[in-house]
């Protein structure tokens, strides 16, 4: 029976196999999973379990070797590079472990970047970013370059950049890995609030216990596959 319920992201028997110098690595092996809109989900597992690769498959940063991936009910498995770029721009937000803000832009410019690419007028962009900055407590930092921000502040800007376009899905890879416990806690509070207030779907790849403790669902991965005792 076909499930017609809308999902934020789902996969069907998705595989990702890398080959380097004749060595084959099955990073993701036959994962079938669905994540509904508004979920706050953690992909957990030891290093090398395929968390990041699966997250990259969700975000169209990797193409599946086999199987299919849908984002917002759109099959992205065979999308062109151009369409994938458009999808990432309009439907997906990314938060990276190393913040990855653009050093040449201010906090506000970083956060409004995807809106700018989408052609949102300047007034509207700035109104939305400022409202979000105020909500997450970095309103006074909008003119600072990343080099003038702490790690926690940079990651907040990165989260703002990810959610400001109201994407179907925010993918966060080890977002708290470089933060101390205070900054990490504040960031998690903020993301939890955004999830609750805005209904943004968050999918994390992490082994941070604090983050896992806040997750409403944990998908455990072992050797690239969903752990046998786990029912996603």
């Amino acid at each position: 029976m076909t499930d017609t319920t809308r999902t934020a992201v789902r996969t069907e028997d998705v595989w990702k196999i890398f080959e380097h110098d004749g060595v084959t690595v099955e990073a993701v092996r036959g994962v079938t999973v669905r994540i509904d809109p508004g979920e706050f989900v953690v992909l957990a597992g030891p290093s090398g379990s395929g968390k990041t690769t699966l997250l990259n498959l969700f975000g169209g940063l990797h193409r599946p070797t086999r199987g299919r991936v849908w984002v917002d009910e759109r099959d992205i498995s065979n999308l062109s590079e151009h369409d994938l770029s458009r999808l990432r721009l309009e439907r997906i937000g990314f938060v990276f472990q190393a913040y990855n803000l653009l050093p040449i832009l201010t906090a506000l410019e970083n956060a409004e970047f995807s809106l700018l690419l989408r052609g949102v007028p300047a007034d509207e962009r700035q109104r939305r970013v400022r409202a979000l900055f105020a909500k997450i407590g970095i309103g006074e930092l909008e003119d600072r370059r990343p080099s003038k921000l702490s790690g926690g502040q940079q990651q907040r800007v990165a989260v703002a950049r990810a959610v400001v376009g109201e994407p179907a899905l925010v993918l966060a890879d080890e977002p708290t890995a470089n933060l101390d416990s205070v900054a990490s806690g504040a960031l998690l509070d903020m993301m939890t609030r955004l999830n609750e207030d805005l209904g943004t779907t968050f999918v994390f790849a992490t082994h941070d216990p604090d983050l896992m403790a806040r997750a409403r669902r944990i998908i455990r991965l072992v050797d690239g596959a969903i752990a046998p005792d786990h029912r996603p």
Partner: peptide, 14 residues
């Protein structure tokens, strides 16, 4: 390289 990767991830086309 990383920065250009970020730009691509944010939706910039090749």
């Amino acid at each position: 390289t990383r920065e250009l990767g970020i730009l691509r991830a944010l939706g910039l086309r090749r």
